[in-house]
Design a protein around this nucleic acid. Structure first.
Lengths: 193, 193
DNA sequence: GTAATTATTTAACAAATGTTAAATGATTAT
DNA sequence: ATAATCATTTAACATTTGTTAAATAATTAC
């Protein structure tokens, strides 16, 4: 059985909706496992995102090109779903690029399989809704942190909530994520210790 | 028939999923229309949000108390859905407060009716997912604007995208929404003209 | 193992935004 | 109509963050 391999994914899913063995297996059967080397891309600019990934190992980052520069908009923690959502939803070319910060193992589901699951098992549609709800709430939390908190506070909170991220992810990405420049982050780190 | 009254709502919904007359009427039948006077609340602090509102007239704002001060986190444009989502999803007391900036007419759906719709008509579940997806994308756009844009740029873009909002909503709420102080907004407005 | 590349820090100065306080304008209640 | 309240602006100064440039540290490729 593959439940051991997919342990983290199953655990994640079960937090939202309870599935029967059959329902779960239907999903696991259409998963493709891919390994990405550091800096390899999961979604390229201009490409239509037709897959969604669960990060079983490693970190992904979502970035886009702004004024010729890469700006990291998001860093996915372990064991979360990631895709270039605007592209995935509307099937338009993606301006977001997703690439591996470290070597990654991804559990990948193709959009057409997902759409089938949605059609055949309404519970999966519910799961889709619930997971997006959670992503939305998290995104709002971030908006809220930009509105009320200083860069220093945002950094300190990230340090508490995802210490492993700060250990493993280059600071330039962390700085982008926090909405400040690398040098400002460096200054701020000194004052925080 | 009530389709005239609910014209904007129907138009909004039809952008996401196509419903039959019956499916649409099932939903419209459980709508409660409420009028809020300026400053009246739709969700109170500590209350469990069990309703979702479509803003047919007027603006709502979502705010919370931080350090004894009201901080406006969001201003809902006309013809959108609003609720205190973390509370609505998880049925926990809301830290977010929702109140009317101007006199409002809201089309309100109770959570239990919504849950019934989800159960009886899978298409509504799809609608729920699609609308949250859209809200998520919008929320991400905002995160992105905090990361890459100056307050001045954020203001200018708001001016272009929602000129009516800047006309109708007190600037202190706009300032919060943009993540800056009222005085900074004022200064910035002078330099923008 | 050494050179090349990439990551991080440091520092001086510039620009943006916050803070405090007050003045002016607009709206609302009586 | 007038006073009271609320909204917006202004200004001086403080703090935070950005910018440019360089130094140091760590990692990677050969």
């Amino acid at each position: 059985m593959h439940s051991e391999k997919f342990k983290n994914l199953i655990k994640f899913i079960s937090r939202f909706v309870e599935f029967t063995e059959l329902e779960m297996r239907t999903m696991l059967d259409c998963i493709e496992i891919i390994q990405l080397k550091k800096n390899e891309k999961f979604v390229n600019e201009g490409e239509i995102a037709n897959r969604i990934a669960f990060t079983n190992k490693g970190y992904l980052r979502v970035y886009y090109i702004f004024d010729g520069e890469e700006i990291t908009r998001d860093i996915t923690p372990l064991n979360t779903f990631a895709t270039a959502l605007p592209s995935f939803i509307s099937q338009i070319p993606s301006y977001e690029i997703i690439s591996a910060i470290s070597d990654c193992e991804l559990f990948v589901i193709h959009k057409k399989n997902l759409d089938n699951m949605y059609l055949n098992f309404p519970k999966w549609e519910r799961f889709g809704r619930r997971i997006i709800e959670e992503m939305f709430v998290e995104s709002q939390r971030r908006v809220y942190s930009f509105i009320t908190e200083s860069a220093e506070t945002r950094y300190k909170k990230l340090l508490i909530q995802h210490p492993e991220m700060i250990r493993d992810v280059p600071l330039k990405y962390i700085a982008d994520y926090l909405g400040i420049k690398l040098q400002s982050l460096s200054r701020l780190r000194k004052s925080v210790e």
